[in-house]
Design a protein around this nucleic acid. Structure first.
Length: 777
RNA sequence: GCCCGGGUGGAGAAACGGGAGACUCGCAUCACUUAAAAUGAUGUGCUCAAAAGGCGUGUGGGUUCGAUUCCCACCCCGGGCACCA
């Protein structure tokens, strides 16, 4: 073995060894308990791996290796979320086909990920842009379609003019496109939706039983946005029709002084209502509809609206006549698209009433309307159906055919996959680029055989990632998205790790897909991810976000090259709490390397044989404590303190003249999940020496995780803190387990203490066994 | 505005209600070196020449023998939602 620690020589060697030995292969149906440990799979961008990727991946790798050493059959897969806009935008710029650039990127990512020594089961690799995968994405579309959970509808939708495509509500953040930050416009278009709203209540309830970070659960709860209230009809005077409103505050109805309807409200489809200023109203409605989502939000403070002249509504609570307005501060998509305004109780109504000089009436709150049954209980949800169609090329084609005679027809399952055509021009025109393919559209109706054309939109990439964790189980299956027996064995996922940015998008959609399968009896569980943990961002030095434009991006390849993969892993885990955002620090990474250099140095120092161990020694005790601590910390994902415990143990080991071999071995076992290459190298060194031969086959990762001896965790002598009035004044050493009287006597005898106590009267003595004694004087 | 996180040395941080600052970085001094780097040793919250002591976990209050930890109010930073009636 080399004198000096040279990770560049050690690391590739063991990576090849592990692959050859197939140590990371998950065994289907094995009798050991299973553990499905999942990373959020990466989008293979042209920029390559970012130092943020390995942070999450190292955590799941530590846990996977640890679980294997503890006798678990671990499934730890990886794949590529390969469809998506950046590849297509790159194609528009450079004319390189997305298929080509994506596969080049995947190759690059793969090489980078492999250089970090993660214990993925590469035999299960998936690529969502491959026909073998997207065939089943299309199958899911049909599955939802056949169950009434996928439908096409004309709706006012989010439109990004720069990306030339529609966006899901979840992708239109702050009225801006999530991808390119252009303003999102509203357009009336025919689009495909998934009926996620059918699962409102279940998606909400399901949160109760899963072990997820509370803030993520809260974000999903808020997104679903359940609110319980009442619906009540307001008559329009001298007319048959009325206006139904939704309110959570039916008790405030006596203070209702006007009604407001949304510009998109149905009332405007009926001209006979006798609205005298119909033209003015119509102009307002048209103007409101034209406003971008962003403009509407910008105008929150300044409320606009128009009074509907010539008609009045009657407040059913007090039979008073009240005016009706149209105003865009009322949203058409929520509740009934109409509200009863109570300016005395609601700021928005108050602002509006002030501007239009409407009466603000303080009235007593009463549940009278509800009790009399005039208002009916009603539950509303903010969540909308998921818009999944995209007018873009690089996605899974929607498997629908339009026949001149038979209308909309699903593509029969036997005809899947509907392949992406290659003869297209990517320049977006507002229509899907697929429209321009000649091949793609030559199709017969599956029903009557007559002339028909294909749907030319593709699905949102979030559709691909909503079910990928199923495909790892059975990625070559040609007949099903995954075999039921394998699903029963492996799923649900035991631990899922990824960034918090997916709080409502991917994580909600994946739960929806799982619940749809569950509802139809295809699977026996309703939540896909039992335990979720978020990885905190790695920021650039100085605490700002890393970005290409700022030129402060750290490339993991450079770190591996300069310090080694094990150093990068140790550094990223030692930085601080796993879920916290922490800035990169070039100096600290040297500390991680120094730690491993010292570990390597133990090798040349170790001389003692197994027989010369000293049981009960100080070192032996510390070792036992460390075994306990590291195991518990890994389970709790407190990697920073686990590594700190290893450092403390190393510091003690280094003080020994001769290092007991059993301590060294166990230290390496504890280190192995964190820094697998160096641990394997040193461990194999010991074993080769022991056997006097060069071993083939046995790996440190086939060893059992060390067990600690509970008896050795306790010290014989303990330091007891002596406090006077709760202030620490000194320390005395006593036998472990000494009682109140014994400690009290010893403490009082202590010279330092006696001067504090002296002639004072001791009123009370607080005693915590093996910890402290507090004299209250 | 509402809802979550979070404020501890020069920096990242640690601490079942029980000695605040473990561990790591940085810095200082020393050793090795012609020198530097690397490595090793020692020190390193503030105050005081030093010891003893005093003061210290965003601010102010409270509970407790004892509070970084629990409660109340406020300030600041980060994130999410945002006219959802």
């Amino acid at each position: 073995m080399a004198e000096k620690y040279e990770p560049d020589k050690i690391e590739p060697k063991w990576q090849k060894f592990w692959e050859k030995q197939e140590l990371n292969k998950a065994q289907d149906f094995d009798k050991r308990p299973k553990f499905y440990c999942l990373d959020m799979f990466p989008y293979p961008s042209g920029a390559g791996l970012h130092v943020g990727h390995p942070k999450g991946y190292t955590a799941t790798d530590i846990i996977s290796r640890y679980k294997r050493m503890n006798g678990f059959n671990v499934l730890h897969p990886i794949g590529w979320d390969a469809f998506g806009l950046p590849a297509e935008n790159y194609a528009i710029k450079t004319k390189v086909h997305p298929n080509e650039s994506t596969h080049k990127n995947i190759a690059h990512f793969k090489e980078q990920i492999k250089s970090l020594g993660f214990s993925y089961d590469w035999s299960r690799e998936i690529d969502t842009s491959s026909p073998e995968y997207y065939k089943w994405t299309q199958w899911f579309f049909l599955f939802l379609y056949e169950n009434g959970w996928a439908y096409k509808a004309k709706a006012s939708v989010n439109w990004c003019d720069s990306c030339q495509t529609v966006l899901a509500n979840e992708q239109a953040q702050d009225g801006k496109c999530e991808r390119c930050s252009s303003d999102v416009l509203q357009k009336d278009l025919e689009q495909w939706f998934f009926k996620i709203t059918d699962f409102n209540e279940e998606l909400l309830q399901g949160l109760e039983k899963i072990d997820w970070p509370e803030p993520i659960k809260i974000m999903q709860k808020n997104w679903i946005g359940k609110s319980e209230g009442y619906e009540i009809d307001f008559r329009i005077r001298n007319q048959e029709s009325g206006i139904r409103v939704f309110t959570t505050r039916i008790d405030t109805i006596f203070g209702c002084t006007y009604l407001v309807v949304a510009p998109e409200h149905d009332i405007f489809k009926n001209q006979e209502l006798g609205i005298k200023n119909y033209e003015e109203v119509k102009d307002y409605v048209e103007m409101a509809k034209k406003k971008s989502e962003r403009d509407r939000q910008a105008d929150v403070k300044d409320k606009t609206g128009v009074k509907l002249e010539g008609i009045v509504a009657i407040n059913p609570a007090n039979n008073k006549e009240i005016p009706i307005f149209v105003a865009d501060y009322v949203l058409s998509g929520y509740g009934t698209g109409a509200i009863m305004a109570v300016p005395a109780q609601d700021n928005r109504d108050y602002d509006f009433a002030k501007k239009f000089n409407l009466p603000i009436v303080e009235a007593p709150n009463t549940m009278e309307m509800a009790e009399k049954g005039i208002a009916k209980k009603k539950i509303n949800y903010k969540m909308r159906d998921w818009l999944v169609s995209r007018q873009r090329y690089w996605g899974a084609p929607i498997p629908i055919i339009y026949c001149e005679k038979c209308g909309e027809q699903p593509v029969p399952e036997k005809d899947l996959p509907v392949l992406l055509p290659t003869d297209v021009d990517f320049v977006p025109t507002g229509e899907s680029p697929l429209v321009k393919s000649k091949e793609f559209h030559k199709v017969k109706c599956p029903q009557c055989g007559g002339p028909a054309r294909r749907e030319s939109d593709t699905t949102d990439t979030f559709v691909c990632s909503s079910w990928y964790f199923f495909r790892y189980l059975d990625h070559k299956n040609k007949n099903e998205f995954a075999d039921k027996k394998l699903i029963d064995y492996w799923l649900p996922v035991d631990l899922y790790v990824g960034g918090a940015e997916h709080a409502v998008l991917h994580l909600l959609y994946a739960r929806f897909f799982t619940r749809a399968l569950f509802k139809k009896g295809l699977i026996d569980f309703d939540e896909p991810f039992l335990k979720l943990r978020n990885v905190g961002l790695i920021l650039a030095q100085g605490g700002v976000k890393m970005s290409k434009s700022k030129g402060n991006v750290i490339n993991p390849d450079d770190i591996v090259k300069e310090y080694g993969a094990d150093t990068l892993r140790i550094y990223e885990m030692f930085m601080g709490p796993f879920d916290q955002a922490i800035a990169w620090d070039t100096n600290s990474i040297k500390g991680a390397r120094k730690f491993l250099d010292r570990v390597y140095g133990l090798n040349s120092k170790k001389q003692e044989t197994r027989n010369k161990q000293i049981p009960n020694s100080k070192l032996e005790k510390l070792l036992n404590k460390t075994i306990k601590k590291v195991g518990e910390d890994i389970e709790a994902m407190k990697f920073n303190t686990a590594i700190s415990a290893l450092m403390i143990l190393l510091n003690e080991i280094e003080k020994e003249k001769e290092i007991p071999q059993n301590v060294f071995e166990k230290f390496l076992l504890l280190l192995a999940p964190f820094a697998p290459h160096i641990a394997e190298e040193l461990y194999s060194g010991i074993k080769n020496q022991e056997l006097g031969i060069k071993r083939e086959g046995n790996s440190i990762f086939e060893e059992q995780w060390p067990k600690y001896d509970a008896a050795l965790l306790k010290d014989e002598k303990v330091n007891i803190v002596v406090q006077i009035n709760g202030k620490a004044r000194g320390v005395v050493e006593v036998e472990a387990g000494a009682d109140r009287e014994q400690v009290s006597v010893i403490a009082k005898q202590d010279g330092k203490m006696s001067q504090w106590i002296k002639d004072k009267e001791i009123k009370k003595v607080i005693f915590v066994k093996d910890k402290l004694i507090n004299f209250v004087i």
